[in-house]
């Protein structure tokens, strides 16, 4: 029902609002003193409340970094949990300013949904989770299987493509929320649970007997999980995009939350520019000179966020893989700050 409300809110705002869509989001965030961030309804490693009720995760840290850059306080974020179905409508209607919710960057979403993707903060691919007892070793052996998935996702489309191109019979059972989908898989309604592979690793931890389940080796799609903002506010688009790049540049330059204060006296011109010792690159974006110091000092660089949330320092234990820096053979590449 929430989605209907959101849709109606969008309808009402489209019908009655007269102002231009591109109202300055930055000014609004400064005025309110809080950043409105859309996250998932609970996905360990990406956006999930911890036992104290605080949101944690890789997607959450991006919002915290934006809040740190603007408001100098990573806690000044209001998180709105959104289902896959609600997420874009919530962004369009202004319910959230940043959508940092493991959403796949596709051309049609970029072109028709009134939003802009800033950058992919996690490169993912779709996989299949099955019970080991099934004895299936490859996705090609899934002929006739029931597949549980979340409705309104690229996953739902990919799975249709995969089974159709491989001439396999299947039955899709689509649920509105992650929880319902997982519960249906766990109860045996489906042989297969399909989603982005990072989610499969994360959700496997939620299952009662996690060792009875395995992720099949095939990845059947490209899923660049990206952050999105409303279309029509270029300054805001730049800020969110460059916060991510700043975290990447900091990792590349070896600037971490621990050593950022010492690094201020570094002779390296790249680091001096990045940390605002030289030049006014932060001010050009509408932020302050020390924006990267705020981000890295209060949230950390990309590598720290990755390790803490999904990598070696987390229960998920996901390898850096494609998400390593470009200098280490991965795809994460931050354009230079200068």
């Amino acid at each position: 029902m929430k989605k209907i409300l959101t849709a109606l809110a969008l309808g009402a705002s489209a019908v009655f609002a007269s102002g231009a869509a591109g109202a300055a989001t930055l000014d609004q965030v400064k005025k309110d003193g809080v950043l409105k961030c859309g996250v998932s309804t609970g996905l360990p490693g990406f956006s999930n409340p911890n036992e104290k009720g605080e949101w944690t995760g890789l997607d959450v840290d991006l919002c915290r970094a934006v809040a740190a850059a603007i408001l100098d306080d990573p806690t000044k974020v209001r998180f709105t949990p959104l289902t896959a179905k609600d997420r874009f409508t919530a962004l369009q209607s202004g319910e959230v300013d940043v959508l940092s919710r493991n959403s796949t960057w596709t051309s049609s979403r970029d072109a028709t949904q009134g939003l802009n993707f800033t950058a992919a903060n996690y490169y993912d691919g779709q996989g299949f989770l099955v019970r080991k007892a099934l004895g299936v070793k490859s996705a090609m052996e899934l002929n006739g299987a029931s597949v549980c998935t979340q409705s309104g996702t690229t996953t739902e489309l990919n799975v249709a493509d995969f089974f159709r191109t491989n001439n396999l019979q299947y039955e899709v059972v689509a649920f509105q929320g992650q929880e319902e989908t997982l519960k249906a898989y766990e109860s045996g309604r489906c042989e297969v649970f399909t989603s982005d592979s990072s989610q499969l690793y994360a959700l496997r931890l939620k299952l009662a007997n996690k060792d009875e389940h395995m992720v099949l080796p095939e990845l059947i799609s490209k899923e660049p999980l990206a952050t999105a903002v409303r279309q029509g506010d270029d300054q805001w688009f730049d800020i969110v995009k460059w916060v991510h790049f700043a975290m990447l540049n900091a990792e590349e330059a070896g600037v971490t939350s621990k050593n950022v204060q010492e690094m201020l006296s570094s002779p390296n011109p790249d680091i001096r520019r990045m940390l605002g010792v030289e030049g006014n690159f932060g001010e050009q974006l509408g932020l302050t000179k020390d924006w990267v110091v705020r981000i890295v000092g209060k949230v950390g660089n990309y590598g720290e966020a990755f390790d803490r949330n999904v990598g070696a320092g987390s229960p998920l234990q996901i390898e850096r893989g494609k998400n390593a820096l470009w200098t280490k053979g991965g795809l994460q590449y931050g354009p230079p700050i200068r």
């Binding site: 109606l8 309808g11 179905k85 369009q92 509105q176």
Partner: peptide, 14 residues
Amino acid sequence: GTTLNQTGQAIEII
């Protein structure tokens, strides 16, 4: 649900 999300045309679909 699904169609709205894939096309993003909330007003028409609702």
